[in-house]
């Protein structure tokens, strides 16, 4: 049973790394700013899932806090970028 679980962990890690590279290629390639913001959004979700997976692999709960923080601050970051695209400024007077 442990072998299956280790295989699943490795498989999920591979999937997340590939997904993050896809999102990174889209972020570098563009072609327009909204594509980059969308790719950044996908990238932080994937990074958060990778951290959760690492937490399962190492059997610790420390990664959970990092994942929680990434979920919160990633949202704030991509929200600010999208707002900037929409309005030209983030915090309106």
């Amino acid at each position: 049973m442990n072998a299956l679980f280790n295989f699943a962990l490795g498989f999920a890690q591979l999937c997340f790394v590939l997904a993050m590279s896809c999102a990174a290629i889209r972020m570098i390639h563009g072609p327009r700013a909204q594509d980059r913001v969308l790719a950044l959004d996908t990238l932080y979700i994937n990074a958060m899932l990778t951290l959760l997976m690492l937490g399962m692999r190492t059997s610790t709960t420390f990664y959970f806090d990092i994942a929680l923080l990434i979920a919160l601050f990633g949202f704030v970051g991509s929200m600010a970028l999208a707002k900037f695209l929409l309005r030209g400024e983030v915090i309106e007077p």
Binding site: A12, T42, N46
Partner: peptide, 14 residues
């Protein structure tokens, strides 16, 4: 399952 879903989502993005 979650790995496959996430990968497909990002491949679709690309």
């Amino acid at each position: 399952l979650g790995g496959i879903c996430t990968l497909l989502g990002s491949v679709g993005l690309l």
